[in-house]
Design a protein around this nucleic acid. Sequence first.
DNA 1: CAGTGGTCTAGACCACACA
DNA 2: GTGTGGTCTAGACCACTGC
Lengths: 233, 233
Amino acid sequence: MGADDKTSYRDIKKAILARIRDRTWGPGTLLPGEVELAEEFGCARATVNRAMRELSEEGIIDRKRKAGTRVNLAPVRLAKLAIPLVRAEIEGFGAAYRYALVHRQVITPPDGLRDRMRLGAGEKVLHLQCLHYADDAPFQFEDRWINIAVVPDVPEADFSATGPNEWLVAKVPYTDAEMQFSAIGATPEIARHLSVAPGEAVFLGERATWLADRTVTYVRLYFHSGYKLRMTY
Amino acid sequence: MGADDKTSYRDIKKAILARIRDRTWGPGTLLPGEVELAEEFGCARATVNRAMRELSEEGIIDRKRKAGTRVNLAPVRLAKLAIPLVRAEIEGFGAAYRYALVHRQVITPPDGLRDRMRLGAGEKVLHLQCLHYADDAPFQFEDRWINIAVVPDVPEADFSATGPNEWLVAKVPYTDAEMQFSAIGATPEIARHLSVAPGEAVFLGERATWLADRTVTYVRLYFHSGYKLRMTY
DNA sequence: CAGTGGTCTAGACCACACA
DNA sequence: GTGTGGTCTAGACCACTGC
């Protein structure tokens, strides 16, 4: 009494992971069925099920009906990447956050952008350019377009003190988002804003969000040299 | 009969998401308790629980005992990033994969690397440089160090036909992994391997894996210009 | 203290995929 | 067909935490 309070699905996960690590169950091995494991661990099948389901979601094992459960050969483990607001990111490492609005204009988008945002012929967008500083050093240059048709009150919003990101997050929901990262050489404009040499390698993040097939916003985030996107998994 | 087969946790997720989207439950709203929702949907509490637990894992809602469940104000949604093997990535978009070993040597690591890999004084590493081609164009240049103390049979492995990544994945387990991405200007060596101009912006991925506090391997992956790391969430 | 979520159980039926 | 995982139920007890 007291020692074996209850068998938790966590215990089972740990036990299974341990056996995979110490090669009792090497890659490709067929694991015992749920009923068998439930007997071994002295718990209900549902408990084993939850443990194995989570391991499967984490990409450690592969489950198929009738075929059974196998240890994944190539653990295509999913990295979980938290994408924070710039402000939180900067304050997170103890620097002072400062924001500045650089440019603001309602425009008819050029063709390339219209395609990318899948806009209709007459639809206009609000174009914004902002700078985010960490301890007075430029940290991120934000080049953003917002679909006025989807966010009709955005032209009235005041972005002189707060960035559009925080405004959008609190005000406009979205259903899908896509993000991609790449490296580019700084154009003269970007170089000027970020205080780097033209042509210098800059880390670029692009993000688009949709609200049921309609583009809400598309943004390019240019990070200062030396920026690293980090993740553990 | 036939219409209402069974209320699935998926149905409940959809229903809740719909109400969040149409602002019935705006950001910060306190949702009804599990029992109440179970009654409304005509199902067991466990079913509602699973739906809400998954929404919570996805970062849509925030749950606290006694306090209840609320719609997240700032959906710091977690992006799930699948990091595939290069081969799979290249073949995935229909290109032919080709591999070449460029360099291979057992060395005593320089100081910087020893710190980064947290190696002991006498420990040696296997240094490998490889190229991964997509349709005969250089796609990725791989610069890797493997801890021989942790992977004792790596010096005997043959990496002339297959890359070390695939070998390691199939052979050596790990408990923790860290990955980071950045942009750098191509050094002359990297430029030569990737067929780009020196100084051109290159996308760099760094990855380190550990087996219980001991570094297994550290690798720098330099991608061809124009490479984009994509993710949906 | 009391309410809400977190988890476990025992049993059941179903869906899929392989033989 | 038949075995394996996928899911639901009804009920129970527990753990945390806000009041």
